[in-house]
Write a protein that binds this DNA or RNA. Structure first.
Length: 859
DNA sequence: GACTCAACTTAGCAGGAAGGAA
DNA sequence: TTCCTTCCTGCTAAGTTGAGTC
């Protein structure tokens, strides 16, 4: 076993990608002291062994840790009084009392810069670090901006990305600015002002009509009850509804045997329907990464052979290796193809069927309002597809029976009919719950629910509440940060660990990290980080390498506060070893309890929401070109979105065809440039006098080498020949149908001859550099063509940049879950960008509560 | 206080629908 | 009109959190 991510195709793929992109990400630079660079894959998960610490402090430390702090209660730090807050403020060694933490603006100061400011302040006690009062975010702490004015508000992970060897996108806006400038510069080269104005106007007109259309579309759907207009603060929200009516859940249809035989030991065998069904589950996954995974195979076969035994297959199925599911796989492929080729009528019938189900089960009545239900379909039986190294991946997920399902609805609501021959497990009337139905799944014994859809009022209210809590944190963040920074040096180990964890959760947007069971994939978050997940490099670089949620690798190197560095070194000290918890005194529950004391509603995950929304708003502001086109603004939007996705480590696999797609787009740009070059030369043929007046017509196009032009023209001619041949054949077929005389082959020959002539002309044009005007060509027409091509080139280039930058980062997750949609709505309003450019219909529906803000709204 | 579990949010991926280019 | 690509949605796994129980 060479790595943790072995047998974990996605993670492995991502790891390979990361390594390929950044070969130096190995631990080659790490301090080799006590922070051994244990390879991830070597890790076994031992029973959590609580390290016995002497509670002696780090060698470098002057203070000592209390020996009786294990599990010590948190020092209760409710929001401090003004005096206490002042004391946090005064912690700084700045003689003016303003240095380290300064009003609301301070929260925006990146740690490394704070650190550098700290050290400066330490060496020069009277040094003022800021001349402003911190009322304005952008004006705050100008001194910190000396190093880089671009990323001052960025959480640590972002800065680290640009600073160290990690494989994340550099996010400093200095780079982004550069990108924007380059685009703008190119734009200037290619699009003159006139065309720009024209383009913008056209875009605006298009957008207006689109907005109108979208608005109409939404108005039709719009729930008459705009609940967000009637929100009351501090209202008890434990009761979720007063009346709830629905039609229950939809069960997947009973299994219909197809009779396709799998092979066992090379021979086709007949299976009972129940056995065939399970064999089919595996057959359908053949040649996927799941089916190649030994754990998946083992778990599947355990369940499959059990069922086969129960149905007495002949011969008895005892060996996975002898099983051949290919015939089933092929059958499913044919079926898939059939579905793809359904007639219009069949497709329509299927659509109607789906609509009927949506109407029946996909809607419910909550307090008299019609609302959409989310996942009304009971999960069909299948093989459990656990992610990463899930020990249960491949296990058989059994068919859910109505007897297992509990429905939740109001007392006066009619109870939906259970499927024929069945009855419901239970009926409850719990108005404090938002679920409509629930059942237990057999593989992990986890509870599944049917909830309302994302666009429902209940989900919307919950979303609004979430973002309001994050906004509340924005107001409190300064003193909370001061608090945990002070606690970093606390004498009690527990408090030190808690403060260090808070630092990481806040600055790196780590998840809380609950403990996990033996029968789950081994993934970690902040509190469950282990010895081997963190390595240190002097003076203050921390390398993190672990598998997070969904077994997505988190691999970043960050510059941390000196004290955090010292603390981590202390937590990692002997007798700590591989497998030991880094935060051995800390649990998520204790951490959250402490956070609740600091601010009502504050939990570890609020930091993620806060930092994501804050970063997004900040980067959006910095990156949006005020006079840019909609396309340029959207690029800025996506870049800000990407910064957040990088911060939260939202990854996706690079699609198989990515390189090919990029190549195609590049070719497209070149082809446009080629056309533009021809148009320019044609103008000069039409009016040679323009050589002096318009010297740009003589400038060669970039990226158009002679070889490429020759090859391109050969391809063009070849395509033309094919087109002519195809048309000739098609025309003759038509003639045959109409009982007309077909065109003679000589006609085709003549047409092809014309292409040959054209090819010769092109060769001549290449040689002489002169392009004779085509029939009807005028300078005006050529100019218009050039303008059109300029626009196409600019637009295609933007697509290219966006695509390349986005290949490995998933933007959707942060957009859906972490970024306050009101930031986007206000930005669209302010910059006249149509909402439908950034939110799909589903997202506009989910966020309709957020769409009423004006352009000045701030997170 | 430790542990368990219910309830909800967050997450990536597969496949189908939609849209654009030829 | 067809084919190809992109985008969107649905699905369900995997987290977090807080309440309940012993």
């Amino acid at each position: 076993m060479s790595s943790d991510s072995e047998d974990m195709p996605l993670a492995k793929r991502k790891e390979q990608q990361q390594r390929a992109n950044n070969p130096s990400t190995d631990d080659d630079n790490l301090d080799s002291g006590s922070d051994s660079d244990t390879p991830l894959g070597k890790r076994k998960r031992p029973a959590v062994r609580k390290r016995v610490l002497d509670d002696e402090d780090d060698d470098d430390e002057a203070d000592t840790l209390s020996s009786s702090d294990s599990g010590a209660p948190a020092v209760k730090r409710t929001r401090p009084s003004v005096a206490t807050r002042k004391s946090y403020k005064d912690d700084s060694s700045d003689s003016d009392g303003e240095g380290d933490y300064r009003g609301s603006s301070d929260s925006d100061v990146p740690l490394a810069k704070k650190k550098s400011a700290d050290s400066k302040a330490k060496t020069n006690g009277s040094a003022k670090t800021n001349g402003t009062n911190g009322t304005s975010r952008t004006k705050a702490a100008p001194k910190y901006k000396e190093e880089s004015s671009s990323d001052s508000d960025a959480p640590l992970a972002k800065k680290a990305a640009s600073k160290t060897k990690i494989k994340t996108e550099p996010v400093s806006s200095s780079k982004s600015k550069q990108g924007t400038t380059t685009i703008k510069k190119r734009g200037k080269e290619e699009v003159d002002d006139k065309s720009k104005v024209k383009k913008v106007k056209k875009e605006e007109a298009d957008d207006k009509s689109k907005v109108k259309k979208a608005k109409k579309e939404e108005d039709e759907d719009e729930d008459a009850d705009a609940w967000w207009l009637n929100q009351k603060e501090n209202e008890d929200d434990s009761v979720k509804w007063t009346s709830l009516k629905h039609n229950g859940v939809y069960f997947p249809p009973e299994y219909v045997p197809h009779g396709v035989k799998m092979k066992y030991d090379g021979k086709p065998i007949t299976l009972a329907p129940a056995v065939e069904e399970v064999a089919g589950f595996f057959g359908a996954l053949l040649f996927t990464e799941h089916a190649e995974n030994p754990t998946f195979q083992e778990n599947f076969f355990k369940d499959f052979s059990k069922i086969a035994k129960a149905h007495k297959t002949s011969p008895e199925i005892t060996s996975f290796k002898k099983c051949d599911f290919t015939p089933m796989y092929e059958y499913f492929q044919v079926e898939k193809e059939k579905r793809k080729n359904m007639t219009k009528e069949q497709k329509e019938a299927a659509k109607q069927e789906k609509l009927a189900l949506d109407e029946m089960y996909g809607t419910c009545y909550l307090d008299g309002r019609k609302e959409k239900v989310g996942n009304y379909r009971i999960e069909p039986p299948s093989l459990f597809r656990g992610r990463g190294k899930h020990p249960k991946t491949g296990c058989l997920k059994l068919r859910v029976q109505p007897e297992q399902v509990t429905l939740n609805l109001s007392k006066d609501a009619p109870i939906p009919k259970a499927p024929a021959g069945h009855k419901w497990g239970a009926i409850v009337h719990d108005d404090t719950k938002t679920w409509l139905a629930t059942w237990k799944e057999n593989v992990n014994d986890s509870t599944k629910y049917v909830f309302l859809a994302a666009g429902s009022s209940l989900k919307g209210q919950s979303d609004l509440k979430k973002f309001e809590t994050a906004r509340a944190l924005k107001k409190e963040i300064d003193w909370i940060r001061r608090g945990y920074m002070a606690d970093l040096k606390d004498k009690k180990m527990f408090i030190r660990q808690r403060a260090t964890a808070m630092y990481l959760i806040d600055r790196l947007a780590l998840r809380a990290g609950n403990e996990k069971g033996e029968d789950e994939a081994d993934t970690v978050g902040c509190c469950s980080l282990r010895y081997e997940h963190v390595t240190l490099e002097k003076p203050n670089i921390m390398h993190l390498d672990f598998l997070g949620k969904d077994s997505i690798r988190y691999q970043k190197s960050v510059e941390v506060d000196e004290q955090v560095f010292k603390n981590i070194r202390l937590f990692k000290r002997e007798p700590a070893q591989e497998g030991d918890d880094l935060f051995d005194r800390l649990k998520t529950s204790e951490l959250n309890k402490h956070l609740q004391n600091l601010m009502k509603g504050l939990t570890a995950k609020v930091f993620r929401t806060y930092n994501a929304s804050f970063t997004f708003q900040d980067q959006l502001e910095k990156k949006t070109p005020k006079d840019g086109t909609v396309a340029e603004k959207l690029l800025a939007y996506n870049r800000a979105n990407r910064d957040v996705a990088i911060l939260c480590n939202h990854q996706r696999a690079v699609s198989k065809g990515h390189a090919g797609q990029i190549g195609k787009i590049e070719d497209k740009v070149r082809a446009y440039k080629y056309q533009r070059m021809k148009q320019k030369k044609m103008i000069l043929s039409l009016e040679p006098k323009l050589k002096k007046k318009r010297p740009e017509l003589l400038e060669p196009e970039s990226d158009l080498e002679d070889d490429w032009i020759e090859e391109h023209e050969t391809q063009l001619m070849e395509k033309e020949r094919e087109r002519i041949k195809a048309k000739f054949e098609k025309d003759n077929l038509k003639r045959k149908e109409n009982k007309e005389k077909p065109m003679p082959a000589s006609e085709l020959k003549d047409l092809l001859k014309e292409v040959d002539v054209r090819a010769k002309e092109l060769a001549k044009e290449r040689k002489t550099g002169v392009v004779p005007p085509t029939r009807g060509a005028t300078v005006e027409k050529c100019n218009a063509q050039i303008l059109k091509l300029d626009e196409r080139i600019a637009a295609t280039r933007l697509t290219l940049t966006d695509k390349e930058e986005n290949k490995q980062t998933a933007l959707g997750t942060s957009k859906i879950n972490y970024i306050d949609p009101r930031i986007s709505a206000a930005w669209c309003e302010k910059h006249k960008v149509p909402l439908d450019k950034i939110f799909t219909k589903t997202l506009r529906d989910k966020f309709k509560w957020a769409m009423t803000v004006d352009e000045n709204w701030e997170f």
